[in-house]
Write a protein that binds this DNA or RNA. Structure first.
Length: 278
DNA sequence: ACCCAGGGGCAAG
DNA sequence: CTTGCCCATGGG
């Protein structure tokens, strides 16, 4: 079953740009992963999505094929830095990721490279997740499963100091004190404030969860990569600014879908300025 | 040996 | 409201 994507699709960029961490490519160039707790196999053909396994509508929604990329791109700034990132990542989509999976994953992301986040995520799935029919992939652990785990067990998944934060937030969500589903009704500021109240969640992680888990496309996470890009290309000659200052002063330049712009800049920088410059 | 990675929390200025 | 330091772990 083939699904039209408004403005094209770059499946590899979408799945490897650092917004989601468990998908894997198969030898036939298709990709397999879990949409919530459902096994899915997908493939990109001519800029469209081929759903080879899984419920078509559900998978299409997960990959946000309804996002109108042409309209989103039209809001990007017309400068060289942004256009180079756009040319490189064209077709990359911000997907609709389950809020808890996204929140938990980004709590473990602090001071870690994408490859490590993936390893921790897979270890958590393997140790605490539930089996899924049709695959050896396991669903992301429920909040209760992580809340019931000991800190030592979480550290065994190589989480380090992040184990304490993940466990505490899992408890908060499992108890219902933090109702992630209800928070979807909050406006951006209220949602950010609610998220920042959770252990291990500061402004950067909150912005990632808003962008990837709540479809708040204006959310603009500033990490070390984006900080460098903004400082060098959009804040030249001025005093070194903190991530928060950069976000407040510059996010507006990237339009109503600033989060999309941010992800293209991140993906481009990571690929071209590559991790190992020896 | 040293540096950095999709940071956050906390105490101190 | 900002800055400095620590928090583990892996890789270059």
């Amino acid at each position: 079953m083939r699904n039209a994507a408004r403005g094209g699709l770059n499946l590899r960029a979408t799945l490897e740009c650092g917004q989601v961490f468990h998908w894997r490519e198969r030898s036939d160039r298709s990709w397999e992963g879990l949409v919530g707790s459902e096994y899915a196999v997908v493939r990109e053909t001519d800029g469209h999505l081929d759903v080879q396994h899984g419920r078509r509508e559900r998978v299409a929604r997960y990959f946000a094929l309804d996002h109108d990329l042409a309209e989103i791109y039209a809001g990007f700034p017309q400068d060289e830095t942004m256009q180079a990132a756009l040319d490189y990542g064209r077709g990359l989509r911000i997907i609709r990721q389950p809020a808890w999976e996204c929140l938990a994953t980004f709590i473990t992301s602090s001071m870690k490279q994408v490859v490590h986040i993936r390893q921790m995520s897979l270890a958590l799935r393997s140790r605490f997740g539930a089996p899924v029919a049709g695959t050896d992939l396991r669903s992301y652990p429920e909040p209760g499963a992580l809340a019931a785990a000991s800190e030592e067990e979480l550290r065994a998944c190589r989480l380090g100091y992040r184990a304490k934060h993940l466990r505490a937030t899992a408890e908060s969500v499992a108890s219902g004190r933090a109702n992630l589903a209800a928070w979807a009704a909050f406006d951006d500021e209220a949602l950010r404030e609610a998220l920042c109240g959770l252990p291990g969640v500061g402004r950067k992680v909150a912005n990632c969860v808003m962008l990837f888990g709540y479809e708040r496309l204006a959310a603009f996470p500033v990490d070390t990569w984006i900080g460098r890009i903004l400082q060098r290309n959009y804040w030249r000659g001025r005093a070194r600014a903190t991530p928060l200052a950069l976000e407040r002063r510059l996010a507006g330049r990237f339009g109503p879908h600033a989060g999309y712009a941010q992800q293209y800049l991140f993906h481009h920088a990571r690929a071209t300025q590559g991790r190992g410059r020896s």
